[in-house]
Amino acid sequence: MSYFLQFLSMMLTALFIENIIFTRALGTSWLFYLTKHPKEIFKYTLVLSGITTVSGLIGYPLRGVLHSHEMSHVIVPVMYIAVLALVYSVTYFLLKKFLPEKFEKIGQNLGTAVFNCAALGTLLVPASARLDLISTIGYGIGMSLGFGLAVIIVGYGLTRLEYCRVPKIFRGVPIALIYLGLLSLAFYGLVGHQLPT
């Protein structure tokens, strides 16, 4: 029961209080892509949760060994990228062999869905905070769900922006960034302090 509560508390922390987009600004490219393709939000959130859970489980024992190295700031990310490459390759083969219809739909975007800042960030943040296994998995899933939530909130806001009389120089990237910044300000009020990187 205590493991479940620990998992749940880490998941809720990562989902709301330490949201991956609003407090850590990771995965903004995929954020803007998914706001234009809202039907893929659920699919992508599911892929991100799956990839980070599996990669987190594989990388956890290796991480313990590598943290003590003086170059851990470089070696741990490289290790996780290698793990993501392994997970991606296995997923690619399995999808292609056993689920060819699904592979046709998602195969082309699978690479960018696995190798991106949101996925690696979801692995690195618990690693740098030295969380245990349950907390790492809970935090990873919470970050993935938090990413989906952030996409929905930002997507809705960007749609709303189309009805505003935005001045010409602010249209597009500038107003989207300012909007994201103001949402991030609101979430900072919940956190109350700068998060460690």
Binding site: L161, C164, R165, V166, P167, F170, L182
Partner: peptide
């Protein structure tokens, strides 16, 4: 940036 009065979100 949002267009002044009436457009702020």
């Amino acid at each position: 940036p949002f267009g002044g009065t009436g457009s702020n979100l």
